[in-house]
Simulated assay, not measured.
Amino acid sequence: MTETIPVAVPRKGRPLEAVLDRLATRVEDSHHAPEREGVDVASLADSISSILRYEKAIAKGEQTAADDVYERLAEYSDLSAPGRPEYTLLRDARKGRPRRIVFDSVTIPLDGVELQLIGREEPFRALRTHEFALGFDSADLVLEEVVGLRAEPLESIADLNARIDPRDTDVRVVAGLGDTVYHTLMGQPDLRRDGSEDSFDREFVREYEGPLCISPRYERLVEAVLGTDAVEGIEFCYPENGREEEAAIADAGLGVYLTVTGSTAREHGLELGEQLFPSETVLMENLAETSGGAGLVADLFADASEQSELTV
């Protein structure tokens, strides 16, 4: 009997799209081609991403659908053909809390195993509670929950496992998927000392005392990537509800925020500084639950070189 390998994935958003993109690319480029005819992994991945982007636009009020949410759910989750994905409904956090269609699961037959992607609200925690051997989630969550705080800063994905206490969890990071945006330090130019050309970097923070504006859920993450010595004398502050993060950082003078181009920060008169840490989707493994089949799936998603960089 073919072994089925369940893998926890996010239900929506950039991390799920990163998983689907990596899966489509690796299946196409490797010997792991589907053994069941008619399953086009690239088309399947693109279809799931397109549906979820469309449903996000509806939840945000940017699109209007002719069919109601239950009719769309039934259409998307038609299981009459093999390899069709299933979706489910969640309450979105946006105004009015609309029902939003999100990913639930799909099973893909590969060479020797069946890969079952299963949507979870918190994949990392599902691995920590031993529900899964493998899963994908943002590296940010690893920093927020299990990475030890030290005086020296944490600077890369490759250093994560060395900061995880094995008495705390059996979960380790296997590889990143490269969908990288950065937690970036930024500040008002007039915050520098008169005549100074110092850049906004970790050394600047080490000498700085005052407010540092961050997202409310990122206190531990920011302490980890700056180092505990650097945050002495720092007072964390947060954007008020509904306020643009860059505007709040401009008022505080200094802050850390996720950036892609940094254009909005510049519009608020901020200067971009050091890229402190990559926010990236990572493949994780619960070492206590890993089987031979799980190893095959991990190899499909991650190169041997990527895995060796994270081996402790």
Rank of each mutant, 00 (worst) to 15 (best):
A224N: 07
I214K: 03
E289V: 05
R84N: 15
D21Q: 13
K60H: 07
D179W: 12
C237L: 07
T169L: 12
G176Y: 11
G178K: 07
T184Q: 10
E274A: 05
H268N: 11
G83W: 13
D299I: 02
A93I: 14
L115E: 07
E207K: 14
V181P: 00
E244D: 12
D168R: 15
C213G: 02
A65L: 09
P6H: 09
K12F: 13
L221F: 08
A247V: 06
V113D: 06
R100A: 01
Y182E: 07
G242L: 10
I118N: 02
A24K: 03
T184E: 10
D137Q: 05
R100G: 00
N241D: 12
D40T: 06
D21V: 13
G293W: 12
D21W: 11
D168L: 15
R53E: 14
L254C: 01
E28N: 09
Q63E: 14
S215C: 07
I249V: 13
S199V: 14
L149Y: 04
L254N: 01
I234H: 03
R206P: 03
I108E: 08
P85S: 03
L287I: 15
L185G: 00
K56F: 04
T184V: 08
R266I: 13
D198Y: 09
A175T: 15
I234Y: 12
H268V: 05
E121V: 11
L110G: 04
A66G: 03
L226V: 08
E219F: 05
I48T: 02
F301I: 04
F136Y: 10
T261Y: 11
L254D: 05
D92V: 06
S291W: 08
V142G: 02
V142P: 04
V147C: 06
T184P: 04
V7A: 01
A126T: 06
A162N: 09
A59R: 04
H130L: 07
G187H: 10
D179L: 07
V113K: 04
E274S: 02
L127D: 02
E144M: 15
L300F: 10
G176N: 00
V102R: 01
R192F: 13
E235C: 03
G269W: 14
T180P: 02
L283M: 14
V205H: 04
D78E: 12
S77Y: 07
A57P: 01
V146F: 09
E197P: 02
P34S: 02
R202Q: 11
Y208M: 10
A8N: 04
R53I: 10
F136D: 08
R167V: 08
V9H: 03
E280T: 06
E17K: 05
E121H: 06
R202D: 09
G176T: 08
R128P: 00
E285N: 05
D140A: 12
D179R: 01
E203V: 03
L52R: 01
D165Q: 06
F103W: 08
E121D: 13
A45Y: 08
E62P: 00
H268C: 12
R14K: 05
H31L: 15
D159F: 08
I48C: 00
E274R: 03
E209P: 00
L115P: 03
Q188I: 11
L143F: 11
S105Q: 15
L20V: 04
L258I: 13
L127H: 03
I51Q: 05
L16C: 02
E244T: 10
T25C: 00
E246G: 00
A66N: 07
R266Y: 11
N286I: 06
E209K: 12
Y218Q: 12
A175Y: 12
L300I: 07
D159P: 01
